[in-house]
């Protein structure tokens, strides 16, 4: 690791040289490389983790371009995972960046995430997040949820059996409908930055903040200190 490139970050007392070295030993798995995921991967790679697998089976659409600076018009039609690998590897050659053009399913998720120190959520639907949650809790892998809608973003770092899990906070979610989700273009980068901060804290062994809700239009920032649900079917005691 070329330590000098992180000199300004090492000056931050929350990181320091020890924290920077620790980050450089951590492997992240990003599931979903769209608006949120591309921005989160970009930040984590710049901040100096050891390695990241970016998993996405989708191709870049022109409607992705308004909410990420990582893709350009020339990328439309190409694999998100493979474009991110190529683009972000050149940002930091110290980091091993691997794009995986694959759909995450209940059958392959274990093999895809089992070596992760953290799973980062870049997905766009609740069922896949519930699958990530169940797998992460079962295999004791921390993960960091993030989602966006209109002008509101949410982030929550989940430490298996220590914090509330995603199932704990979604007892009232009805069957999801497939529909195009409205998103303000500047929102995913903002929420990805918050997700990246919570991810770094998890990797450094710090306590995450709870459920963060940020409305970038009205400038409301809330933190919900959520307890684990002892009756949760995924992380509860039963």
């Amino acid at each position: 690791m070329e330590i000098d490139r992180y000199r300004r970050q090492i000056l931050v007392k929350e990181i320091g040289q020890k924290g920077q070295k620790l980050l450089a030993s951590k492997h992240a798995i990003l599931i979903g490389g769209g608006g949120l995921g591309s921005n989160s991967a970009n930040l984590l790679i710049r901040m100096g983790i050891e390695s990241i697998d970016i998993i996405d089976y989708d191709t870049i659409d022109k409607t992705n371009l308004h909410r990420t600076a990582v893709f350009s018009e020339q990328d439309v039609g190409k694999s998100k995972a493979l474009v991110l690998q190529e683009r972000l590897q050149s940002v930091n050659t110290d980091v091993q960046v691997k794009g995986i053009n694959k759909k995450v399913t209940s059958k392959n998720i274990k093999s895809l995430v089992q070596l992760a120190d953290v799973i980062i959520d870049g997905t766009d639907n609740i069922p896949l997040r519930l699958l990530i949650n169940e797998t992460a809790i079962k295999h004791k892998i921390p993960w960091v949820y993030a989602g966006v809608y209109e002008t509101v973003g949410m982030v929550m770092a989940i430490l298996p059996k220590k914090t509330a899990c995603f199932q704990c906070i979604t007892p009232n979610i009805p069957d999801s409908k497939t529909q195009e989700i409205p998103v303000l273009g500047s929102l995913p980068a903002t929420i990805a930055a918050i997700q990246c901060n919570e991810t770094i804290k998890v990797l450094l062994g710090k306590q995450p903040a709870g459920l963060l809700i940020y409305d970038v239009w009205n400038q409301y920032f809330d933190i919900l200190d959520v307890k684990r649900n002892p009756c949760c079917p995924i992380c509860g005691k039963k």
Binding site: Y149, V183, P188
Partner: peptide, 11 residues
């Protein structure tokens, strides 16, 4: 009791 908007799911 607290009330908050639904979990958001876009990416």
């Amino acid at each position: 009791i607290t009330l908050a908007p639904p979990v958001v799911s876009g990416g």
